[in-house]
Design a protein around this nucleic acid. Structure first.
Length: 490
RNA sequence: GGCGCUAUCGUCUAGGGGUUAGGACGGAAGAUUCUCAAUCUUCAAACCCGGGUUCGAUUCCCGGUAGCGCUACCA
């Protein structure tokens, strides 16, 4: 039982037939947390035994996703495609002990089996035809060059069960298991064989994987037994579903870990969010859990048994929390990436200025992309004012005129501080008999292109005197969004 | 279809034979006034259904239903 395992060895064993999706990433994360918690070893193994469906690009993508998420492996990656000798030995052993047998049925004739079987009201299962061939005859045919797959001889009768660290006792009747294939006719191993042979060879103590493997487990337990090895602890983790509660797929938008990087999610936020999908920290703890807390708290016992829906808005919340908690120094390199991607030309590269401006804005960011998007005017002179913002606060030509005048006043202001700029604006508004708010909101749009931004006077000092003056003076050149529809008609 | 697993607010979940069923995200309302995507305050929101056990079930048992998984010479 889990308890306090000594030197546990766990693995994440993705099949490179697709990118690293959030489900796989969470499985990897749980393995990693478990290993770190018990000072064990976390290793990575690439299950590429199906050469027709595995590609090196996919392997790259998976490694990249793991690295980005900060999930580092201690051993590997091991590639199953390079460990075929191990599987061949295991198959030989099973054949020699009679635990497995050659099957000469051709793939094609097996293919219409399901349809045929259901038509006859039978279960679409391998009937064990070749199991009845005497071993000597089978060996002779095999040596004569006849193509043969290798099947496992599932015990007739009885049942096979295991104690799952998450689900408890699970048991299957052996009559439910068919004589599954261990090696294809080209002698390449299939999943069950290679996984078990590897897990034995790599001395894996705990198998933490998706709950979709629960039904596979009895077959593997049988294999452990037949190979004379002790079974590891199994811990199945419930699946992650889309908002419609169906299995996560491309239909649900981003499911690739890398896609979240592209969306401006910081890795720590995704990690924290993923950890909390199906796992509960101790009562009373905050949900914002950095690595050390995650590692300290993690336990297989606190993994839930029901599937979890991926909630994008909660991920976004984690992201805002992490972004605002980071010092600007940590944010800067991440943000520079976004500027590069968006082609943002900076107004200034002054370090202190960049850092203080990031500090001014980070509390309002939902994503790293905001720094190249709605915050763009702070960092660059090239930005498109938001039409809705123009419509909301800069429709009034009177306000526009006053803002130009205000710009002139600021041009003559010696002390361009938050206090002084505010005093000047309020005095000006009072003198003109307009509400300060009207000028403030208009100026915000003129300066940032947005209706939403930090306090105006903080904005002005962040922008600096000359840019503030310049943008205010240019206010009349901004389009009058409200008129555009009407003017098209006339 | 068969087998397996699961079932508490919209979502992630806590809890547990007697509770005002707790928290978080999201939502709503209010406050603030210089905007809100900030902040503060408040509110709404759940035990799948039916039997059984019991003085008492959301909790334990059984059945149903639903969802998910597996049912390949995929992993």
């Amino acid at each position: 039982m889990p308890g306090f395992p000594e030197n546990p060895r766990v693995r994440f064993a993705p099949s490179p037939t697709g990118y690293l999706h959030v489900g796989g990433a969470r499985t990897a994360l749980f393995n990693w947390l478990f290993a770190r918690h018990f000072a064990g070893v976390f290793l990575l193994r690439i299950e590429d035994t199906d050469v027709s469906r595995s590609t090196p690009e996919m392997v790259e993508g998976i490694l990249e996703g793991l690295q980005w998420l900060g999930i580092a492996w201690d051993e590997g990656p091991y590639y199953q495609s390079r460990r075929t000798e191990l599987y061949r030995l295991a198959v030989d052993k099973l054949i020699s002990t009679g635990a497995a047998y050659y099957c000469f049925c051709r793939k094609e004739e097996l293919e219409d089996r399901p349809a045929q079987a259901t038509g006859e009201g039978r279960l679409p299962r391998y009937q064990g035809t070749c199991r009845r061939i005497p071993a000597a005859e089978a060996l002779r045919r095999k040596q004569a060059g006849e193509a043969a797959a290798v099947r496992f001889a599932v015990p007739q009768g009885g049942s096979t069960g295991f104690e799952d660290a998450v689900f408890g006792k699970v048991e299957f009747s052996n009559s439910e298991l068919e004589d599954f294939v261990l090696a294809r006719s080209d002698s390449s191993p299939t999943y069950h064989l290679s996984a078990v042979a590897d897990d034995i060879d790599l001395r894996i103590t705990h198998i933490i994987r998706g709950a979709d493997h629960i039904s596979n487990t009895p077959k593997q337990v049988l294999l452990y037994n037949a190979l004379g090895a002790a079974t590891p602890v199994f811990a199945h983790v419930p699946l992650i579903l889309g908002a419609d509660k169906t299995r996560l797929s491309k239909r649900h938008g981003a499911t690739s870990v890398i896609a979240y990087r592209e969306e401006g999610i910081v890795p720590e936020a995704l990690r924290n969010f993923l950890a909390l999908l199906g796992w509960t920290p101790p009562a009373g703890s905050s949900e914002i859990l950095k690595d050390d807390a995650l590692i300290r708290f993690f336990s297989l016992e606190a993994i839930s048994r029901s599937n979890a829906v991926f909630d994008r808005s909660k991920l976004d919340w984690f992201n805002t929390e992490y972004i605002r908690s980071y010092p600007a120094e940590r944010l800067l390199p991440l943000i520079e990436e976004e500027w590069k991607k968006a082609g943002v030309k900076l107004r200034s590269r002054d370090g202190t200025w960049l850092l203080s401006t990031i500090d001014l804005l980070k509390g309002r960011a939902r994503s790293l992309k905001d720094f190249a998007g709605s915050f763009r005017a702070f960092f660059s002179d090239e930005f498109q004012p938001d039409p809705a913002a123009l419509d909301k606060f800069l429709k009034d030509t009177g306000v526009r005129k006053m803002l130009v005048e205000l710009g002139d006043r600021y041009g003559n202001l010696e002390d361009f501080s938050e206090q002084e700029t505010e005093r000047v604006l309020r005095d000006f508004a009072a003198a003109r008999g307009v509400k300060a708010g009207a000028l403030i909101n208009g100026a915000r749009v003129a300066l940032t292109g947005q209706a939403v931004a930090p306090s105006l006077f903080a904005v002005m000092t962040a922008l600096g005197k000359s840019t503030t003056v310049e943008r205010l003076r240019g206010v009349e050149q901004l389009p009058l969004e409200a008129l555009s529809l009407g003017s098209l008609k006339t």
